[in-house]
């Protein structure tokens, strides 16, 4: 187990190296540079700025300077928000994304799991059909349709919540619900499939023959196996929720990390692009590791090697 974790962590460092390198060169292929904003800069100021941030060096030298800094854990200052450390930008904006992401995940699991279990237990009844049709609707409604619709209903028509922004305590509800309900749909489908698979197996029949009460069969025996596909999905789901936050944050005008990522790409803010991308990748790598460990714990047949 420990060997597995160590090996995966080593592998993760390689992944982060690849991500850093790819990002470094891709963003420099984009036409334009960090100082070509709306206002034209005098050439002398520009030269000074480039010198200060080391942009006058040849690209390969810049690569090694930046790589060394990132390896030390120094995410460098932003080029566009002059002198503000990227680490501070991430520290300020990521909590917003995290609150939205975690509450969306909670909604997704809280709605999706029970719906999937009920649909599996009442297979081919109206309950099953209506739950699964709703789930399919959730999968087909993209966040950027669901979001505006929820804004319209709860913000404009009913006036219960703010349409957009990040000012009041209740402002997390609409964005989290938008994203949570869509992932609830995927989770409901996976739960139903997983539960049906398990409920058909011999050990369930044995338990039933022994006279184990139905509730205990479902909660104690079937759920553990039935959850496997759901747990396997949580990694990609979290990835989708963090990267999907670009769109959610645009719809609801939230000051989260996604906005900084998209903004920095548009502005050619090289160091900020690198910092956010590496940050996202590190987050994903950790989540995937956590998912694998959780899967091994749920299913003894999965061997971590």
């Amino acid at each position: 187990m420990l060997r597995f974790i160590l090996r995966r962590l080593f592998q993760s460092l390689l992944v982060l190296g690849v991500v850093f390198t790819a990002t470094f060169f891709l963003i420099r292929l984009k036409p334009g540079d960090p100082f070509s904003g709306e206002k034209a800069m005098p050439a002398s100021v520009r030269a000074q700025m480039e010198k200060r941030y080391g942009l006058d060096l040849p690209v390969w030298k810049q690569y090694f300077v930046h790589a060394a800094a990132f390896a030390r854990g120094d995410l460098l200052p932003s080029l566009r928000y002059e002198g503000v450390p990227n680490a501070k930008i991430i520290a300020d904006s990521f909590p917003v994304s995290l609150v939205i992401g975690l509450s969306a995940l909670t909604i997704a699991i809280g709605v999706g799991l029970p719906a999937g279990i009920v649909a599996a237990l009442r297979k081919n009844t109206w309950l099953d059909y209506s739950a699964m049709s709703l789930a399919m609707l959730g999968i087909c409604l993209p966040t950027f349709v669901m979001g505006p619709v929820l804004q319209w209903i709860f913000g404009l028509k009913l006036g219960w919540l703010n349409v957009a922004g990040w000012f009041e305590r209740s402002d997390w509800i609409l964005p989290s619900a938008t994203m949570g309900l869509i992932y609830a749909a995927y989770i409901a489908r996976l739960t139903r499939g997983g539960m049906l698979e398990v409920l058909n197996q011999d050990f369930i029949r044995t338990a039933r023959a022994k006279g184990v009460p139905g509730r205990q069969i479902v909660m104690g025996h079937a759920l553990r196996g039935g959850l496997l596909p759901v747990v396997a999905f949580l990694g990609p789901a979290f990835a989708g929720i963090t990267t999907g936050s670009f769109i959610i944050e645009k719809i609801f005008q939230l000051p989260g990390l996604g906005q900084h990522f998209v903004g920095s790409v548009f502005n050619s803010d090289y160091t900020l692009v690198q910092a956010t991308t590496v940050f996202y990748a590190a987050l994903l790598v950790l989540i995937n590791l956590g998912t694998d460990i959780l899967q091994a714990w749920l299913n003894p047949r999965v061997r971590l090697t």
Binding site: L26, F246, Y280, L284, V285, N288
Partner: peptide
């Protein structure tokens, strides 16, 4: 699989 692929589509 473990890359934030949306990020890369945007960069590409």
């Amino acid at each position: 699989y473990s890359l934030p692929f949306m990020v890369f589509v945007i960069l590409l």
